[in-house]
Simulated assay, not measured.
Amino acid sequence: MITCANCGEGNPPDTEFCGRCGTFLNWRAEEPAPVAAAAAAPGAEQPAVQQPTDERVLRAPAPVTTPPRPLLPGDLICGNCGAGNEPTRRFCRRCGNSLADAETVRQSWWRRLFSWLFGRRRRAKRQLGVRPRARGGRPWRTAARVVSRLFLVLVAFAGILYAAVPPFRSGVNTEARTFKSWVTRQFSNKLVPARPTKVTATAAVPDHAAGLAADNARNTFWAVPPTPEPVLVLSFDKPVDVRQAIVRSGNAADFSSTHRPAKLHLVYTTGHTFDVNLADTPDPQTVTIGESAGTTSIEIHIVALHRSEKGNTVAISEIELFEPEK
Rank of each mutant, 00 (worst) to 15 (best):
T53V: 11
P87D: 05
S98F: 13
R93M: 09
C21V: 01
T15V: 02
T53N: 03
P52Q: 05
R28P: 03
T88K: 11
E30F: 09
A41G: 04
F91T: 03
A48E: 05
L71V: 06
L76E: 02
T88Y: 12
P52M: 08
D75Y: 09
E16Y: 06
R89S: 06
E55V: 05
D54A: 13
R28W: 10
L72G: 00
A48D: 01
P67E: 05
F24I: 00
P52Y: 02
P67F: 06
C92I: 07
A36W: 13
C18G: 00
G79C: 04
A83I: 02
Q46Y: 12
C21G: 00
A83L: 08
A44E: 14
R93H: 06
D75K: 04
V57G: 00
C95Y: 15
V49F: 11
A37V: 13
A41M: 11
L58Y: 09
L72P: 01
N80K: 12
P12G: 01
G22I: 05
V64Q: 01
N80G: 03
N80Q: 07
D75T: 04
L99D: 06
R94S: 09
F17Y: 03
D54R: 13
N26S: 04
A83P: 00
R20Q: 03
I77Q: 06
C21F: 00
